[in-house]
């Protein structure tokens, strides 16, 4: 948003990886995710996880943080992973009897579940390393540099800025309802609960909207005219490129070996 490059905001960080130019980090990690999301052989997926682990070590990323990220996505996936073994057709390997219901887990289903879990882990961890390595403003500026429509980047910046303000407002509203002994009761058809919650959403909408107007006026007061000059990004150094190519190449190699491995197996048959 500001034309001048502030050295303290740009890529300040403790480890070698933190200092890699942000655009390179984005491209490398996204490529990594694209490549690993397409793998289906367990050994290669595990090797990819190994690369992630190595990067996490170099970046001195706390294990707690990594584990936390994984835990966040688990609920959605667990559901699929539990259901899959019993729904994918194939050779039965295990039987679960739930009263009159007998469920057969298939080998194909189990394998499928395992592969999905590994891909998921790769994706989540790679993305969380990227956010760990790149402060939000720097990440946004990198996206600008990568030709993401500026309007979208600006929108994201505003959203993250006001997310905290509005989430606070929502929390305060919830607290003040709780203070008068409101708690969600019953289910969807509990009209008191649902109408109270809906009112809260309505009030939050109004408050956000009037807040938005005041923000806009405050920007006008400082001469805002609708155009936000792009800030120059940092120069890409050779060492940055090396890191980017290194990470990409590692993932690419795994992917090639997986494809190649499959062909070898077919040739042998």
């Amino acid at each position: 948003m500001c034309m001048t490059a502030d050295p303290m905001v740009q890529g300040g960080g403790e480890t070698v990886l933190h200092r890699v130019e942000a655009r390179i980090k984005v491209v490398a990690m996204v490529t990594f995710v694209i490549l690993t999301a397409g793998m289906s052989a367990t050994p290669y997926l595990l090797a990819a996880l190994g690369i992630i682990g190595l990067l996490a070590v170099i970046a001195r990323m706390p294990v707690r943080l990594l584990a936390g990220r994984l835990a966040l996505v688990v609920p959605f996936s667990v559901l699929m992973l539990v259901v899959l073994p019993f729904t994918v057709p194939g050779e039965g390997v295990a039987l679960a009897e739930l009263g009159p219901l007998a469920l057969v887990a298939t080998r194909e289903g189990l394998l499928q579940a395992q592969v999905l879990a590994l891909r998921l882990a790769n994706g989540v961890l790679a993305a969380s390393i990227l956010t760990f390595l790149t402060p939000f403003p720097v990440l946004m500026n990198a996206l600008r540099g990568l030709r993401v429509p500026p309007i979208l980047v600006t929108l994201m910046e505003f959203t993250v800025r006001y997310l905290f303000v509005l989430a606070d407002e929502a929390r305060r509203m919830q607290l003040s309802r709780q203070a008068r002994d409101f708690r969600p009761r019953g289910f969807l058809w509990h009209s008191w609960t649902m109408s109270t919650l809906a009112q809260m959403v309505g009030v939050l909408f109004i408050r956000s909207y009037t807040r938005a107007d005041r923000v806009y006026q405050a920007m006008l007061a400082r001469g805002f005219s609708g155009h936000q000059p792009v800030r120059a990004g940092a120069r890409v150094k050779a060492s940055d490129l090396c890191w980017g190519i290194g990470i990409t190449a590692a993932a690419l190699t795994l992917r090639m070996m997986e494809v190649g491995g499959g062909m070898w197996l077919q040739l042998l048959k």
Binding site: M1, V9, V215, A221, G223
Partner: peptide, 30 residues
């Protein structure tokens, strides 16, 4: 706007940028 600087009541209405530095640059850049 360059002659009269207006400080709004709620700083959350006014300080919108991602960092303190960028926010302070906003007016001069405009």
């Amino acid at each position: 706007k360059s002659q009269v600087g207006l400080v709004f009541q709620d700083p959350d209405d006014q300080v919108f940028a991602g960092t303190v530095w960028e926010d302070v640059c906003f007016g001069p850049v405009n």
